[in-house]
Design a protein around this nucleic acid. Structure first.
Lengths: 348, 348
DNA sequence: ACGCCAACTGTAACCAGTTACATCTGCAGA
DNA sequence: TCTGCAGATGTAACTGGTTACAGTTGGCGT
């Protein structure tokens, strides 16, 4: 390295000098500066009461002079604990995951754990790679989304004997504990609200099928013969909702639009209104998620409430218990709930 | 500690047994298992080419048998690097910060750095505490939001000689580099769009003033004498927008509503329409942020675009450069931009 | 004046890796 | 046959903390 920097002596000297300046002081330096032993310095940090006040002050002075900050790595090497867990989510750019993580972070903080986030873009290979990276930096546990895994993922987890929890889904037989809601059932609940209102011809708008949560929702509906459903895949965004609605309205018009995500519903509602149609008089729109904003759209969106915040908390507690006390959590199913607001009404 | 657990011999034995079972194999164990030295095992990890293939296989076999995963802490202690930085944001439960973090995370990942997130709830004391925690676990750099700091924060940063960047704001004279947009200017741009359309009586809806970005926006407007502005503080949410609008419409009705955040605008628009008013014919609504969804509301929201994604990227690059190559970044101002859509029109 | 104990401090081993340097082997070239 | 050297491996000293154990000191009781 030095060779590669090579060349002028002066530049090397500057470099080294800079390096020397930057070098963080360590325990030994502080001990020397204060004229005490390393043990005493360590004690000032960890059990100040056992150190004579005068000595303590001398040590604290030395710490300040040398701008000493203890090394976490060194601490970790002794305790074997890093006190952080990793969360692998498809994207941060989504209300849902932001809310999960917000609650997760709060819950973990309460247990004195930190949260490292990594995004996978719903790609199992990226998930695997990032999981490796998280383990390399010492994650004590992982949170993954859904149930689509790379084949190597399990081996990795088994090797590290790592606490891992899958969220946003539910399956008691899955090889790791799941904490989440029933995507299948939630989709059915949404549909039955619409059919209960008399709707038969219904357009179903959903995000990319690579996402297994979306897939479950779609699959649940495909089995339903008593309604005339047409499926429209689009992107998981308001823009996607708008675009899909343009396609829907250009064909044989349904009486209701069922969006398998609220973000899509928000875009869909806007676009429906832009076409001069009234909601719910001319067209019912149903969501699924219940984002905080959905109650305050115009009109307020009927949807299925998913207990996302509760899930974040539950996951935090479960993972903390597993990491801290080796208590492997049981799978946990959180109920969804039909929320009827203003965007759905009787057919015609 | 053992004393505290105390009591029955059997229970102690169980404990120890469990501990022994859980104890992760280390380099020495692997070396013994493979019948080689620690150096050879280490070389298998770091420079496999220098190890004889037969030996390498033997070592790899031992690693697999013992399910060995290298300790990040031990690695970190040698390299002095933890390869992660911390981000302190007011909340994760916001489109804005989710988007910033999404881009930040991507940018950092490209530089092989991880991101630890912590939320501060806009409280300088929490920020300080969480910053301490992040440093304790070895963060190599920090990202903070805005310019409101606890007095002790600076000392902490100086002590650790820590790269810290403040985002979502701009001030070249601030004691740490800022990367963000001009909140003052953005608020003025929003206002002048409305006054340019002839609006004079304008209700200004904004989030809590404890947030210094909000404060800057409000302060910028308070200096403007040529318009009749009434200020309404509410929560930073669509619900807040709804609620504030109810207050606005119960009094002397303005011709336009200027929301200093798009989330508030979304709620405001919904509530305005719920009162039977048309946008923009009866009431103009202006936002500030330009969330991805704002273009797909009904009507599409006129707003000021803040380069949030670009900011995330820029911060990632800047912080990575500082951490990796000791290049302290220059303050960076990212331009905002007026986006005129369908929610604003001429007065009356 | 002596012993004892508490309060304080120091020494050195330890955690789990990396790596400079030393050693050992075997084969090619003189 | 001896030298030289490359390739493979081992030894031990680091990294920066914690902590068990071993001193040292001084005050108090007898």
């Amino acid at each position: 390295m030095q060779e590669r920097q090579g060349g002028v002596i002066e530049s090397r000297a500057v470099r080294m000098n800079k390096t020397a300046m930057r070098k963080r002081a360590n325990l030994r330096d502080v001990a020397a500066e204060a004229g005490v032993s390393v043990a005493t310095v360590s004690r000032v940090m960890n059990s100040p009461a056992t150190v004579a006040p005068a000595t303590r002050e001398r040590v604290e002075g030395a710490m300040r002079r040398l701008q000493w900050v203890p090394s976490a790595a060194a601490r970790a090497i002794n305790s074997g604990r890093t006190r952080f867990v990793g969360a692998l989510v498809p994207t941060l750019d989504s209300d849902i995951f932001a809310r999960v993580l917000a609650n997760l972070e709060q819950g973990l903080t309460a247990q004195r754990l930190s949260l490292v986030v990594a995004t996978t873009d719903d790609d199992p290979d990226i998930e695997l790679a990032k999981a490796r990276a998280l383990l390399d930096i010492g994650a004590e546990g992982l949170i993954v989304s859904g149930m689509t895994r790379s084949p190597d993922f399990d081996e990795l987890v088994a090797r590290a004997r790592l606490p891992v929890i899958a969220i946003s889904c539910h399956d008691p037989d899955y090889r790791m504990p799941t904490i989440g809601y029933d995507n299948h059932g939630a989709a059915l609940a949404a549909l039955s609200h619409l059919t209960g209102l008399g709707h038969r011809r219904i357009a179903v708008l959903h995000g990319p099928l690579r996402n297994d949560r979306t897939q479950r929702r779609v699959l649940a509906l495909q089995g339903q013969g008593d309604a005339d459903l047409t499926f429209h895949e689009t992107t998981l965004s308001t823009a996607g909702g708008c675009q899909a609605v343009r396609g829907v309205l250009s064909g044989r018009r349904p009486s209701a639009i069922l969006c398998l995500s609220d973000v899509i519903a928000a875009g869909a509602m806007a676009e429906v209104q832009r076409h001069g149609l009234r909601i719910p008089d001319d067209m019912s729109v149903m969501g699924l998620d219940d984002l905080p904003g959905s109650a305050h759209l115009y009109p307020a969106l009927s949807t299925i409430h998913l207990p996302v915040s509760r899930m974040g908390r539950a996951v935090a507690d479960a993972l903390a218990g597993w990491v801290e006390r080796d208590e492997k959590p049981d799978p946990q199913l959180l109920d969804h709930e039909l929320v009827v607001r203003a965007s759905t009404g009787p057919c015609r």
